[in-house]
């Protein structure tokens, strides 16, 4: 730990203000880099297709990930199943830049997350609220993202998670110092991390939005709600014109407070991904891992 953990948190700082895009082939990875992605997430199927296909979804073929690593110069991330530390070891062995211990894949362990402190490469994990974020950080995550509801094109869950996180950070900040012990119990999170949030009014790591981002407006919404960057999964390569939409989302994240520019960016993007409402889905991924 020590230096390595700091360097891993700092790589996430370098990704801030950027868009991390899901890609399934070297060709898509090139389109993403060309469009201005600050990193790509290599996976076999994007979340919308994971939903459509069903069954157990696992870490991607290392050969496919290598192909993507060779295709781009930006950081390459990849997903492993919750609790599947052997998949994580494999991803570390191929020199992945960031591992996403992700609820999008089928969980491998219904009790334990990976002990991420045992790894040199960094991990990002999903969280719906402050307690969950701090538990992941105590396990060694060096970046957090909202869980949202992947593969739906519906932003409502990501908004809910971001608002809840911010509300709880505000509440912890407002407590008296001697109230933090009880708050740590309530949040089921380590006391030291609760103290950090109390003193700094933020998470100890970078926090991105993820799950359901489909338009430049969605990305701007999440940034205005306090996200430090955005993951876009199915929203790009399930849309009518992936390259154009990807570029528009990148610019929307850089200028999330500029409605005139956002209006121009939102024009003529072609068809957005169809999307599924939260009432229509049967598989709730956000409930995987707590």
């Amino acid at each position: 730990m020590g230096n390595r953990y700091e360097l891993n948190k700092e790589l996430a700082q370098m990704l801030k203000g950027g868009v991390i895009m899901d890609v399934t082939t070297p060709e898509q990875a090139r389109i993403a880099e060309e469009a201005g992605a600050c990193a790509v997430m290599a996976l076999e199927r994007i979340p919308a297709d994971i939903r459509a296909v069903g069954g157990v979804s696992r870490m991607s073929d290392p050969k496919m990930i290598r192909g993507i690593q060779e295709a781009v110069s930006i950081p390459v991330m990849a997903k492993c199943r919750i609790g599947h530390f052997a998949e994580a070891q494999i991803l570390q062995a191929i020199g992945i830049d960031y591992i996403d211990e992700s609820e999008v894949l089928s969980p491998a362990d219904d009790v334990y997350h990976i002990n991420k402190k045992a790894f040199e490469v960094p991990f990002v994990c999903g969280a719906r609220d402050l307690g969950e974020a701090l538990r992941r950080i105590s396990e060694g995550a060096s970046m957090i993202r909202t869980k949202g509801e992947p593969g739906t094109g519906d932003i409502v869950q990501a908004v809910r998670h971001m608002r809840k996180m911010n509300r709880e950070i505000g509440q912890v900040s407002a407590l008296k110092k001697d109230e933090l012990y009880e708050e740590a119990k309530r949040l089921q999170a380590p006391y030291e991390l609760v103290v950090y949030v109390h003193e700094h009014h933020r998470l100890p790591v970078v926090n991105f939005a993820a799950g359901g981002v489909a338009t430049p407006a969605d990305a701007a919404l999440m940034m205005q709600l306090g996200a430090e960057g955005v993951f876009v999964g199915s929203g790009i390569f399930k849309s009518g014109n992936p390259a154009k939409r990807a570029q528009a989302i990148v610019k929307a994240v850089a200028n999330f407070n500029d409605p005139e520019l956002l209006a121009a960016l939102s024009e003529d993007l072609g068809e957005a991904m169809v999307g599924i409402n939260e009432q229509e889905i049967q598989l709730i991924m956000e409930e995987r891992g707590r």
Binding site: C38, A39, Q247, K251
Partner: peptide
């Protein structure tokens, strides 16, 4: 600043 030069270079031009 630090970040991804490919992104920054592109946005510098397009903006």
């Amino acid at each position: 600043p630090g970040g991804e030069s490919s992104v920054q270079g592109k946005l510098l031009r397009e903006l």
